[in-house]
Write a protein that binds this DNA or RNA. Structure first.
Length: 618
RNA sequence: GGGGCCGUAGCUCAAUUGGUUAGAGUACCGGACUGUCGAUCCGGUGGUUGCGGGUUCGAGUCCCGUCGGCCUCGCCA
């Protein structure tokens, strides 16, 4: 899984070595070891105990011929997870008794003295790595006994891997002149868009701190303060519903630089991440990373976080479909762009050689797959041996249209072509994106042998919000609008693009960032588009505006979702696997039973009273 | 807030159409065993089937409620 870091010396007052380091050349040494009883194999007249710590396992031999009867009897009473200290002689194992399953398999320690440091209750589930496979312990049980779960070698390796990732990041950033600075946890609400966790103030009844959703504003203030290059391994809090890839508190690698543009952020992060791959996975990352403009990503992959390991690509066939005798094709193609609608489109996905790989039933099921995107259905055409088209949709592309379609898609005999038409191009794109993802996986087209990173750039600044008939920022509103679209801020907000970027790894967004507004006038105009009056802007973000007026350098930054990043690097799909003390989907900690009711006196001190007539969520 | 799945021994699971005394592996306890490494062999303990109610001659199984966990849509970068 990972590269061993160098083992430090374990010589302390209680032990001479860890359980993972003794080798054949240590034979003859007298050593003291400490650890947990991993497993014991009791032969009556001879007793083996595997002693475990986080560095490995070492076989202990209790031989009554070399041991007092009392000590041997004491050894016989050892049970899994008892904590012991032993002293004995390292011996090379007999040839036939060597084990290649253990790094220490060539030696064993013949115990002469045994000290039981602490007796352990029978654990609720096995800690030993050599427990039977396939009997995965339920996450609920693991979280309830997390201190024991965390003792399992697989879990330890994950957290240690995470540590190595963080260390690689820290060292790489330090080498580049970055300064790690902590920002407040008790702060005030920042406009990140999520619900805040609130902390009541004892000294000011009725006022609340908010836990930060990110250090966004603080890091901008640090740029204003002249700190040039800042980073932080920052805890962030968002009080929203949970998912496998979402915890209520999570960690970001947060960074910000002054006197830079996008390119500097790209180069910096690429260098820092290459360091992580190098040191944590032993892999040389290809640099620079790939780049895609947002509209290009949507057009070719139907997603703003495409998995580039999937070779399938979407093509636009709107112009061909516009001439189709099929009404739904021609109408979708002709749907006009309006103030709030992007216009219609017909998109096609060619799946090479797949004409015979999907059954009629599977093809019909694609419609359901695509339904959540709002698409009405999926048409399909197969390219037969002679090049002629097959399937119900072929009549929608007669004669020259069929040829045009084949040419556009570079379709070969044996190919399957999936077509989605919609009066909203975004829907057609999203539907094709889903088809691409699902078929790529289902047909085994995704090349999982290498990690693929890609920057997504040139996002639209605003999104139309039908509920308020207004505009909301797609990213966050402190991003600079792209220079060549800034004039459209007031008259055509949807045409404005941001200087924001996402970093996508194997189809998952692992980070995002932007070039910030350092010009207070532009910042005001952006907030105005979002419906903030100058007074409101000043009231909510006054401290930022003030800072921007006080000598703010041009600055830009980014943040990497560290938990998700580590999970992806380890090929895990649940953040809980890389978080030491994770929470459930209801945001409780099964180990500490947080959140919990508090003493009435505590509430009184805060000036709070719990109303029983208001249910949760109201 | 909505949807889906799940809850049986410490753990991982089984239990026919609603049927009689709820089983297995492992863990645990006891015994045997001097080269094992998932030790092996023999024996044994262990159950409020999450909780509450209902239907039924009869409920682990069906229905309602509730608690908890997981996944997911909304929400959230």
């Amino acid at each position: 899984m990972s590269h061993e870091s160098q083992t430090p010396s374990f010589s302390t007052t209680r032990r001479d070595a860890s359980c993972g380091e003794l080798r054949r050349h240590d034979a003859g040494r007298r050593v003291r070891l400490c650890g947990w009883v991993d497993r014991r194999r009791d032969h009556g007249g001879l007793l083996f105990v595997d002693l475990r710590d986080r560095w490995g396992r070492t076989q202990l031999v209790f031989d009554p011929d070399r041991l007092g009867a009392e000590v041997f009897a004491e050894a016989g009473r050892l049970r899994a997870e008892d904590v012991i200290a032993v002293e004995g002689a390292v011996r090379e194992r007999p040839e036939e008794a060597r084990s290649d399953k253990l790094a220490t398999g060539e030696i064993e320690v013949h115990v002469e003295r045994l000290e039981l440091l602490n007796r352990a209750e029978t654990p609720p589930f096995p800690v030993s790595a050599s427990a039977r496979e396939g009997d995965d312990v339920a996450m609920e049980t693991r979280m309830r006994y997390r201190h024991i779960d965390l003792r399992r070698p697989v879990v330890q390796q994950r957290l240690i891997f995470r540590h190595r990732v963080v260390m690689a990041l820290r060292q790489a950033l330090d080498a580049l002149g970055f300064v790690e600075i902590e920002t407040p946890i008790l702060t005030r609400s920042t406009p990140e868009g999520a619900r805040d966790y609130l902390v009541p103030s004892r000294l000011q009844h009725g006022s609340f701190y908010a836990l930060p959703q990110s250090p966004q504003l603080f890091k901008q203030l640090l740029m204003v303060a002249g700190y040039d290059r800042y980073f932080q391994v920052a805890r962030c809090f968002r009080d929203e519903d949970l998912r496998a890839d979402r915890q209520p508190e999570f960690t970001q690698l947060d960074l910000e630089m002054s006197f830079v543009d996008e390119e500097d952020i790209y180069r910096t992060l690429e260098q820092v991440l290459a360091e992580v791959w190098q040191r944590c996975k032993g892999v040389q990352l290809e640099r620079p990373f790939a780049r895609l403009r947002y509209d290009e990503a949507i057009a070719r992959y139907g997603s703003d976080r495409p998995d580039l390991r999937n070779p399938l690509e979407i093509r636009d066939v709107t112009d061909v479909a516009a001439r189709s005798p099929f009404g739904f094709l021609a109408e979708a193609a002709a749907a006009p762009r309006t103030r709030t609608e992007p216009g219609g489109a017909v998109r096609a996905l060619r799946v090479p050689g797949a004409a015979d790989r999907l059954s009629r039933k599977e093809l019909d099921a694609l419609g359901e797959l695509v339904a959540p995107t709002g698409a009405k259905g999926v048409g399909w055409i197969k390219v037969a041996e002679g090049g002629e088209l097959r399937g119900a949709l072929r009549k929608g592309f007669p004669d020259a249209l069929g040829a045009a379609l084949r040419e556009r898609l570079e379709a070969q005999p044996g190919d399957l072509v999936l077509v989605v038409a919609d009066r909203n191009a975004d829907v057609a794109a999203a539907a094709c994106g889903r088809l691409r993802e699902t078929l790529g996986r289902q047909l085994g087209l995704v090349d999982t042998s290498a990690d693929r990173l890609v920057w997504i750039t040139d996002f639209p600044y605003f999104e139309y919000d039908p509920e308020t008939d207004g505009y909301i920022a797609c990213r966050h509103p402190f991003t600079q609008p792209a220079a060549d679209s800034i004039d459209r801020l007031e008259d055509e907000p949807l045409a404005v693009r941001t200087r924001a970027y996402d970093l996508v790894l194997n189809g998952s967004e692992i980070g995002s960032g932007s070039v910030r507004n350092h010009d207070v006038e532009i910042q005001k105009r952006v907030l105005a588009v979002m419906g903030y009056s100058p007074e409101e802007s000043e009231q909510r973000f006054g401290f930022l505006m003030e800072a921007l007026r006080s000598g703010a350098p041009p600055h830009a930054g980014a943040a990497i979702g560290l938990d998700r990043f580590c999970a992806l690097l380890l090929g895990l799909d649940n953040l809980r696997e890389v978080v030491a003390f994770p929470k459930t989907t209801r945001a409780s900690c099964l180990l500490t039973h947080a959140p919990a009711p508090v003493d009435p006196a505590q509430l009184a001190a805060l000036g709070l009273r719990i109303r029983s007539d208001v249910s949760v969520g109201e």
